[in-house]
Design a protein around this nucleic acid. Structure first.
Length: 107
DNA sequence: GTTGTGACGGGTC
DNA sequence: CGACCCGCCACAA
């Protein structure tokens, strides 16, 4: 894409943190924000929405604090979300409808 | 420098 | 449970 801009320091921090999420587990936007050292859930969502490191940064392992999926590959609904659910299940994460049980998978 | 917006979160009603 | 509001930080125009 040519509309891509250079990732800022903050965004880089976010991608780095998300990349460390172990397979079979998930994290939340708020948790990532704290791990990054600065920013909030909103900022993290914004960064992941522009995720230029596609498969390297497993954005599908990041969900909302209330357990709902959030978004994937730049979308919050549609086919992309269906894929996100499938990937999580393939990694051993139980997905009930559009939700995840953070009690077991939210590190 | 100012304004609007967002893949959010927590609190209220 | 759902709907609503307010606060939060970073980014683009």
């Amino acid at each position: 894409m040519k509309t891509d801009r250079k990732p800022t320091e903050f965004e880089m921090s976010v991608y780095q943190v998300v990349r460390t999420i172990p397979r079979g587990k998930v994290s939340t936007y708020g948790a990532v924000a704290r791990a990054a050292g600065r920013g909030t859930a909103r900022s993290v969502g914004s960064a992941l929405a522009r995720n230029p490191f596609a498969p390297e940064v497993p954005c599908h392992r990041v969900v909302r604090a209330d357990g709902t999926l959030g978004g994937f590959n730049g979308a919050t609904e549609g086919e992309e979300m269906t894929r996100k659910t499938g990937m999580l299940r393939a990694e051993g994460v139980e997905v009930a409808g559009d939700r995840i049980d953070l009690r077991r998978f939210g590190v």
